[in-house]
């Protein structure tokens, strides 16, 4: 059951016939695997989080975060931090209730990065 806050937050999606309250609940119940934390993967994670995907499974990439992120997720002040730590913290800005899990329910094989990939995955979850 969606909370009042979730109904407000996702109201524009819930209005869609293909989504509705039950579709938004399906999105919130999903855990999507993000395979890489490169720029395309970070943009994919950001848009999945904004769309109301409930959980993400991220790779344990501890390479240094870049100084510039054209995905728009990381801040300049994140430069040099372990990438997965910075990504998790910034994703929480986009979706405070987002969970991080090791096991996933939705694979993202063959899905492009960025909002295009998020759109394809949202569609896949709603059609399942």
């Amino acid at each position: 059951m969606l909370t009042d806050g979730q109904v407000d937050r996702f109201s524009r999606q819930i209005l869609l016939r293909e989504v509705g309250g039950s579709g938004q609940e399906e999105l919130l119940a999903a855990c999507v695997r993000v395979e890489r934390l490169d720029e395309a993967g970070r943009a994919l994670a950001l848009w999945l989080a904004r769309s109301g995907i409930g959980a993400l499974s991220l790779p344990p990439d501890r390479s240094p975060a870049p100084a510039r992120d054209a995905a728009g997720l990381l801040l300049a002040s994140d430069a040099g931090r372990p990438l997965v730590d910075a990504v998790r913290e910034r994703l929480s800005f986009h979706a405070p209730d987002l969970a991080f899990r090791s096991a996933w329910t939705v694979e993202s094989d063959g899905i492009p990065g960025g909002p295009e990939g998020a759109l394809a995955l949202v569609r896949r979850i709603l059609r399942a």
């Binding site: 524009r12 999606q13 909002p115 759109l119 949202v122």
Partner: peptide, 17 residues
């Protein structure tokens, strides 16, 4: 308008790009 018809979130990212 969007407030009546709704919009799927990642679509605006694609179009903005």
């Amino acid at each position: 308008a969007c407030a009546q018809a709704g919009v799927i979130s990642p679509l605006v990212g694609v179009v903005g790009g």
